[in-house]
Design a protein around this nucleic acid. Structure first.
Length: 310
RNA sequence: CGCGGGGUAGAGCAGCUUGGUAGCUCGUCGGGCUCAUAACCCGGAGGUCACAGGUUCAAAUCCUGUUCCCGCAA
């Protein structure tokens, strides 16, 4: 099948790879322009571009497909793909593009639609302590993740699973599902199902405003905040006035009478919460790298009675 | 040239300002105590202090260059 692939970040790589390995003819790849990233603002190509370069697939990185993107639309028209596959591309596709492929534009989305439409479905599912989430493939409409659904695949969210880990798992699941979706779509074996607008929720991109930990919340809420924000932007707090980021935690059974935020156990950084306790298991100090809490404590022991976040 | 921190024993750090025998916590090895232990006590091994050059009687420490890593910001 002739496919134009649109996607940008790591999440999209397993999908394009799976399509490539399945023998589809990937005519072209569209991704976001290279962006200045990291130290020194070096221009970094998005992961999908790296893959495309490796496979000698033509790459297009338009700033926009709407304004001034006509030439790119023409490129797609000339390629006349059977299908356009979109995975975390990061741009809205105009109707002029949506109408080109014979089979339509198929999107791989990291949630069980209609819940968690938007840019941050995976992280928000973790933050909200969902028991399960999954992948939905859909025919793209003009709205944001509003198209008719094709196939779904569900998975449980682990008790201590971070958004980053779930992200990787869902990326792989999405890859499998997109291949299956195209296969069945071509054979006419799928009946698109409209989304129930009543149940729709929106999962916006995460911001650092979500980072500070409020230990007066329940241990479970704190724990899920830590999981959901890892690896980025990360839950944060302070030890002795210095900021630390928390990558992993575990809920500790039992209760304490200590005030929220107090270190209950200086050996493993168990912290009192509004209800219950959490153990911070992987953290990162300013200017340092992330490491297991045990390693951190060897170099920078925490005094008895220390209160985090002060 | 966006701002900043750092490379010291297997791990995490201190020491550098005010040059003068390499230190802490943990791990590891051996021994001891104990019914027992991630407990405690005693002892040992393990480091060209990132690399190169300079200053000096003497450099982990001061100066210069190189390189690698990381945080912020995007």
């Amino acid at each position: 099948m002739k496919i134009v692939f649109m996607g940008t970040p790591d999440f999209a790589v397993p999908s394009i790879k799976a399509l490539y390995d399945a023998g589809h003819d990937i005519q072209a790849v569209f991704c976001q322009p290279d962006k200045p990233k990291g130290r020194g603002y070096k221009l970094v190509p998005p992961p999908v571009k790296v893959f495309a370069l490796d496979k000698d697939i033509p790459i297009y990185q338009p700033k926009s497909l709407k304004n001034g993107g006509e030439e790119f639309i023409k490129v797609i028209e000339d390629l006349a793909p059977d299908c356009i596959v979109v995975a975390a591309y990061g741009k809205i596709l105009p109707k002029a593009v949506l109408d080109i492929p014979r089979l339509g534009c198929v999107n791989v989305h990291g949630s069980l639609l209609p819940k968690y439409r938007g840019a941050g479905p995976i992280q928000w599912a973790v933050l909200n302590d969902e028991k399960t989430t999954g992948i939905t493939t859909m025919l793209m409409g003009e709205g944001l993740d509003t198209g008719d659904m094709l196939l779904k695949c569900e998975t449980e969210i682990g008790e201590n699973e971070t958004a980053a880990e779930l992200f990787d798992r869902l990326a792989d699941m999405g890859a499998e599902l997109i291949v299956e979706t195209l296969d069945k779509l071509e054979k006419g074996e799928i009946s698109p199902v409209p989304q129930n607008e009543e149940e729709a929720t929106y999962a916006p991109m995460l911001t650092k405003d979500l980072s500070p930990i409020d230990f007066t919340k329940s241990a479970r809420a704190v724990h899920k905040q830590i999981c959901g924000l890892s690896d980025w932007p990360c839950a944060s707090t302070t030890i002795g006035g210095k900021r630390i980021k928390v990558y992993r935690s575990e809920i500790v059974a039992g209760s304490t009478t200590k005030a929220a935020g107090t270190v209950v156990n200086v050996k493993d950084l168990t912290i009192a919460c509004g209800d219950g306790m959490v153990k911070l298991t992987e953290i990162q100090a300013e200017g340092s790298k992330r490491m297991a809490t045990a390693d951190y404590l060897r170099g920078k022991p925490v005094a008895e009675g220390t209160v985090l976040g002060e």
